[in-house]
Amino acid sequence: MLSKRIIPCLDVRDGKVVKGVNFVNITEIGDPVEHGAWYSEQGADELVYLDITATHEKRKLLSGLVRKVAENINIPFTVGGGVNGLGDAGALLEAGADKISVNSAAILDPGLIDQIAKSFGSQFLVIAVDAKKINGSWVVYRSGGRIATSRELFDWAAEVCDRGAGEILFTSMDHDGVKTGYACQELAQLSEKVPVPLIASGGAGKREHFLEVFTEGKADAALAASVFHYNEIPIPELKKYLKENSVNVRI
């Protein structure tokens, strides 16, 4: 059976990791390869590099980072943040990214999903969806959670799959950063509704939350940032715990 995936997320700005591993003696601050290699050795199944660079010029640095990671890391990685068109997607593929994650640009122009899937294959395209519950309905947000859209989570997830998304990365904005667990109920509903693998994001605070997201939440993968950055939950211990609790993980 496919194992459940554990995915650390690293924040990148101007081609450097600004939030990655904050507790070991990494020699070159911000080096994407060193951070990624450390997680890979710990047993991470995939990596996500999330670019938070503001300006277009500096975005070129991202391609350089992607190439360095592709040259040096022997597990798959996804690059997200600021992919605005087919050109951006192609440049990241050319640099060696295994997958890209697209969020706002897909909301503003859903046809971009079809274009990327057709040009580079569905396996290359993760659609990231940020949503928040408002008056009982899950509203999709864009632009890093700053702007509410007219889209509803479950309808949007179904649409992106129809258009060719290969995977969905769902972040509950209500759960993100509070470390009280993932949005398991919504994840389970999503997982049953969408035909593609589902990555859960937002809410990990302790190892039990990972167990819940794979059992109750029916997620295929769990993404987290701070619990890994500060080694609050070491990945080897997490995987051992999950295995002891009958979750299929790669050890």
Binding site: Q123, E167, D220
Partner: peptide, 10 residues
């Protein structure tokens, strides 16, 4: 099952 078959398997 879910398609693509994506991830680590034995």
């Amino acid at each position: 099952g879910k398609v693509p078959h994506m991830g680590w398997n034995r």
